[in-house]
């Protein structure tokens, strides 16, 4: 496993992606991404919007329960990487640590955005090397899912050139990504999911109803989760510039409760809509996070 801190320092995203994936694919025997046309994989509870063609009618007749059949992908699959470019993603944990407070873990200095870039690049590399099409959607750019090394390189270059700024208009970007996927595909969202929670969820649900599979990488830093501030701190909002002055120790309890509720909310929402949800924290090595994610996919 390679530390995200080290990976964050490598400028060449393609190289980073290759390093991550090389450490990853050994041990993974099958494609973790499911298509609809080949070998039967598993049953899944029917969701409104699922193609009736895949409903197992015999099973319905036998048990009165509606399941659809899932197949292991053998043909080209289309995946779209949706990357959050909002300013809040530029937060990196230890760079802003309060002096005098020592963390137990030597957390990464890599920003959430850089971490998301690495994850996205690794996923793109992984998907592309399997011969599937992969695209990129962000606030100001759109690359339709395509196969081929040239496309991958262009995608990685585009990913590498992205910058964080302001709001990323999450609902619009998600809707655009869902609508541009011409057939059922994979929508991989990498975000801290702070922006307009409800609307983003509505859009994600809509995308799922359109038949897309939704994968959520909830990118958070350790400091956001643990709030290691003990002294007086003025917090400046990275997106709005607003300032709140609090004592870290006093504000911690309510903050931790609120963040736990926030994470739980997304977990519940994702579970209710069968999104694949992964909370990734930027101080964990990206390949470990990916491995965990891929293994959980294989178990499905």
């Amino acid at each position: 496993m390679i530390d995200s801190q080290i990976l964050g320092k490598i400028a060449d995203l393609e190289l980073v992606a290759r390093i991550v994936v090389d450490g990853l694919v050994s041990g993974l025997h099958r494609s973790p991404f499911h298509g609809y046309s080949a070998e039967f994989s598993q049953y899944r509870r029917y969701r409104p919007g699922d193609d009736l063609k895949y409903v197992d009618w015999k099973l319905v007749a036998r048990t009165d329960r509606v399941y659809t059949k899932q197949f292991r992908e053998t043909t080209n699959m289309a995946a779209s990487l949706v990357v959050d470019t909002s300013a809040s993603m530029s937060f990196s944990a230890s760079a802003h640590r309060t002096p005098g407070v020592r963390l137990q873990t030597d957390a990464s200095h890599v920003s959430k955005f850089r971490y998301a870039q690495i994850l996205a690049a690794a996923l793109a590399h992984l998907i592309a090397t399997q011969g599937d099409g992969v695209g990129l959607v962000a606030r100001d750019r759109f690359l339709p899912p395509r196969t081929g090394r040239h496309h991958l390189r262009a995608l990685l270059a585009s990913l590498s050139a992205m910058k964080t700024a302001g709001d990323w208009h999450a609902p619009d970007v998600v809707r655009r990504a869902a609508e541009r996927l011409t057939r059922r595909g994979l929508l991989i969202v990498l975000s801290d999911l702070y922006d307009t929670e409800d609307r983003v969820f509505v859009e994600l649900r809509r995308a799922a109803r359109m038949g897309h599979e939704i994968v959520l990488f909830h990118v958070m830093s350790r400091d956001e989760i643990e709030f290691p501030y003990a002294s007086d701190v003025e917090f400046a909002d990275l997106e709005t510039g607003g300032i709140v002055a609090v004592n870290g120790r006093e504000a911690r309890r309510s903050y931790l409760d609120a963040v736990a509720a926030f994470l739980e909310r997304w977990r519940t929402r994702a579970g209710s809509e069968a999104f694949q949800y992964s909370l990734v924290i930027t101080d964990t090595p990206p390949d470990a996070a990916l491995r965990k994610f891929l293994l959980s996919r294989q178990e499905k």
């Binding site: 937060f91 801290d192 702070y194 917090f235 400046a236 909002d237 990275l238 903050y255 609120a258």
Partner: peptide, 15 residues
């Protein structure tokens, strides 16, 4: 107080 840029202030209760 040290000024720290933070991703979001929505969970910080002004105390």
């Amino acid at each position: 107080a040290a000024r720290i840029p933070f991703p979001t202030l929505r969970f910080i209760q002004p105390g």
